[in-house]
Design a protein around this nucleic acid. Structure first.
Lengths: 214, 214
DNA sequence: TCAGAAATTATTCAAGTGTATAATTTGGGC
DNA sequence: GCCCAAATTATACACTTGAATAATTTCTGA
């Protein structure tokens, strides 16, 4: 009986493969389905190898959680930088990026919810959540400040903070609705609702991009 | 060796105890912690009894999910009926009820997230989600229609629907923020932000109750 | 009071769980 | 070409899991 042959992968690459496999398991089978054996199988690897890269299964899950959150935040932050034009256009793109794939899709929501449900169970997960939430909101708060100054309005910290909280609420809520019951919104696209809602929250500032049609 | 004595409980009561124990397990230990044995222990019962009330562990989880959602919806719907005064006051109370305990608390969020993360895993959970979401939004949509007509504005279906979606988004999103990182909002209470945001979304209609102070 | 149906417990089972450890293979540096 | 550290596999273990079954207790109704 001969052993199966294998190939030695660079540490970073193998870690990434394991994390990706972990996330696949969680989104398709739930946290309970992310067993050491299932993850290893999907990564094309033997169960024992996991403990060579992570000191425990829990640490692997935490690494996976971190990747999900930094991935989502960086994607929407990128979208707000691509179109360099105006602050309004950047906020507009930021909102839309939050409510369209790949940020707004079932897999992302499934992963997010699975981890959130563990925030109260494990303090390590709570810390990861807190960090990623603050990172996201600080991006949004800066964006709001830019929009306000661009519109010639006062951008004091207090007001920016409250607006960012409210806007974050709209985005989060619509992200939930869209990804959970997206099929109910074929006729009333969410990004449009979101943009209009935020415009209203901002006191009537228009975020319309130049290339917009209805 | 004598068997432990027990008492025969009415079916409804025992089922309720098992469901409550299930929810306690999930909120404190996660879905993975809601094992047949742990639930039975907390319900003061033997593991085997669970299969006498539910044909499988999964069916018990589904019953628990249903209870969580109907409980939350009925609580906020009740809050919108107590003060019979005006439609504006009812919407106001509805919003506040969503963002204050017991609806807005860590336990509820933990439970909700755990179940949501299984919506994509198990079609039965998806169906429960869909039903409870539509029930909630139909309550909100009726409330919005009342407010609009009360303010003398047009309350056509299309507009009510879009407004309900947006308002639901604000509520969901702020509910998330408040329950997840509530300690960050000691100085900027969320119910206030929510009410003001909805007022703006409604085009400036004031929802202020008579007994309001700042 | 005393059956007997139904609720509850006790016990068992096979499968799956994370982890620990030892045996092997790989691939880069000499 | 070969050696040796490190990556990977293989195997084993102790424990937990959901479920199935049989044995017992409870309590109602006649």
């Amino acid at each position: 009986m001969t052993r199966r042959s294998f190939h030695r992968a660079p540490e970073a690459e193998r870690r990434q493969d394991l994390i990706t496999a972990t996330l696949d398991c969680i989104s398709e089978l739930g946290l309970q389905g992310a067993t050491v054996r299932e993850v290893a199988t999907r990564a094309g690897v033997t169960p024992g190898l996991i403990r060579h890269y992570f000191s425990s299964k829990d640490q692997m899950l935490q690494a996976a959680y971190r990747e999900v959150m930094t991935g989502m935040t960086s994607k929407v932050a990128d979208a707000a930088d691509k179109g360099q034009s105006s602050a309004c256009a950047r906020l507009h793109d930021f909102i839309v990026a939050n409510l369209t794939p790949p940020v707004a899709d079932g897999r992302a929501l499934s992963l997010w919810a699975a981890f959130i449900s563990h925030v109260r169970v494990d303090p390590d997960f709570a810390e990861i959540h807190r960090e990623s939430y603050l990172a996201f909101r600080s991006v949004l708060e800066a964006l709001v400040a830019d929009v306000l100054t661009e519109a010639g309005q006062a951008a004091d910290t207090k007001r920016c903070q409250e607006l960012a909280i409210a806007i974050n609420g709209v985005i989060d809520g619509l992200w939930l609705e869209g990804t959970l019951v997206g099929d109910l919104f074929s006729e009333t696209p969410l990004p449009g609702i979101a943009v209009r809602s935020v415009e209203v929250l901002l006191g009537g500032i228009s975020l319309a991009a130049d290339t917009q049609q209805t």
